[in-house]
Simulated assay, not measured.
Amino acid sequence: MNRVILFNKPYGVLSQFTDKGTEGSARPTLSAYIDQPGFYPAGRLDKDSEGLMVLTDNGALQARIAHPKYKRPKTYLVQVEGTPDPAALEALRKGVDLKDGPTKPAEVSQVDPPTNLWERDPPVRFRKTVPDAWLRITIREGRNRQVRRMTAHVGLPTLRLIRESIGDWHLNDLRPGAWRWASETGA
């Protein structure tokens, strides 16, 4: 049986166990939260993003979770700056042309601000003169900072990005920095 860990990565944490950055940078990594040997992240989440990461001790399963050819859906709650109009939402749904090529179509809906969300440290900047909105975006590929680049492309810069789910695995009530065991199938 392959072992799977679901982890709620806090803002500012690198999605790796060691920091290979500049010497003396001491950026927080997964090792500050997960002390299970032999586990590796199945995919990445940039340090400015929060939410669900799946880790496993099986390389084949890791590849099936992370590789885009398996088209495992990844769903994000995205706080954007500005007010989404129908044209911007439709562009995201159809796919947008980024510098590294067109994105595949995404599932996109505008949602009410989440009521059960934890505070972020540091907080998201707030400007009285610029409205913000929340979107739920599901993609089936995983380019570097893809969701952020997609929303910026349609004039809605991302302020906060939280991954809610990967395939059948969901964040649910897992708090930032906490992890739990899960089944291989995501049930």
Rank of each mutant, 00 (worst) to 15 (best):
Y33W: 12
Y40S: 06
A63R: 15
L174W: 02
A26Q: 14
L14Y: 14
V4E: 13
D46R: 10
L45C: 03
S165Q: 07
A91P: 01
V4C: 10
G95M: 06
Q36L: 14
D97A: 14
R27W: 04
T56V: 12
L135P: 05
G38A: 01
G101S: 12
R149T: 11
I34G: 03
S165E: 02
Q62D: 00
R149H: 03
G21F: 11
P157E: 08
P123W: 00
G155V: 07
I139M: 01
L135Q: 11
L55N: 05
A91S: 13
W134Q: 12
S109R: 15
V111Y: 07
E107F: 10
A66C: 01
W134V: 07
V147L: 02
L77Q: 11
N2P: 15
L89Y: 04
P113R: 07
L92W: 04
L89W: 08
N2G: 00
N2S: 15
L98S: 07
V80S: 02
P102H: 13
I139Y: 03
A182C: 03
Q146I: 13
R27G: 04
E119N: 10
K9E: 08
I65W: 07
R143T: 10
L156V: 12
G167L: 02
F17L: 13
G155T: 06
R175V: 07
K128M: 10
V108W: 07
R72M: 13
R136L: 03
G59L: 05
M1A: 14
G12W: 12
V124T: 15
P73L: 00
G177R: 04
Y11A: 14
D112G: 04
A106M: 03
R136Y: 00
R140E: 05
K47I: 02
L14R: 12
T75S: 13
V4L: 14
Q62F: 00
I5N: 01
I162D: 02
I34A: 06
K128I: 11
L89E: 05
D97W: 02
N8I: 01
D112Y: 03
V78H: 08
G82E: 14
K99H: 14
L55R: 09
F126S: 13
